[in-house]
């Protein structure tokens, strides 16, 4: 009965082997036309991605490199979305390293202000928060280091 209605309204629920034939043909002809078998094609894709990874990070799941047919000629079309820099969250180790670097920079900065011995910059470069942060990070040591080093 469903078959009857399908035919009545020209519906075709599941695609027949004709559609399979078409997609198989398209696949085989893409490779025939450029004389590049599927396996070599896969190698080429992997190599392209290696090169790209040297320069930028990209979203592995979104990569789409495929051969496109334009009439009888073929083109390699690559859609490789890059990851935005801010999307990358630092790992804990990175975070610790950053913190350390920041502290070193901060101590250097205080060194410089001492070395400069200028009047006006001194007050500008040493806003209150630096002292607060330093105290938060390491309770006792930083002030003593600060005192010792320049001497």
């Amino acid at each position: 009965m469903t078959n009857f209605f399908d035919r009545m309204f020209g519906k075709n629920n599941k695609p027949g082997t004709g559609a399979t034939a078409k997609s198989r043909l398209e696949f085989v002809l893409v490779h025939d036309r450029i004389n590049l078998p599927p396996e070599r094609m896969a190698e080429m894709k992997a190599e392209i991605l290696q090169v790209i990874a040297k320069y930028v990070s990209y979203d592995h799941d979104m990569v789409d490199i495929s051969l496109e047919q334009r009439d009888r000629s073929s083109a390699l079309v690559a859609d490789i979305p890059f990851q935005k820099a801010k999307d990358v969250l630092p790992s804990d180790a990175d975070y610790d390293a950053d913190l350390e670097a920041w502290e070193q920079a901060k101590t250097k900065q205080t060194q410089n202000t001492f070395a400069d011995d200028g009047d006006t910059p001194k007050e500008m470069v040493e806003p209150s928060f630096i002292e607060d942060d330093a105290l938060n990070a390491e309770t006792d040591e930083p002030p003593t280091e600060d005192d010792n080093d320049p001497v």
Binding site: N12, G16, T17, G18, A19, A21, K22, L25, D71, R72
Partner: peptide, 19 residues
Amino acid sequence: DMVKKGEMLSADDITDILA
């Protein structure tokens, strides 16, 4: 008949592919 049932490549399929 087979084309209608979807069991054979149609003329359009073939001209599409061969351009």
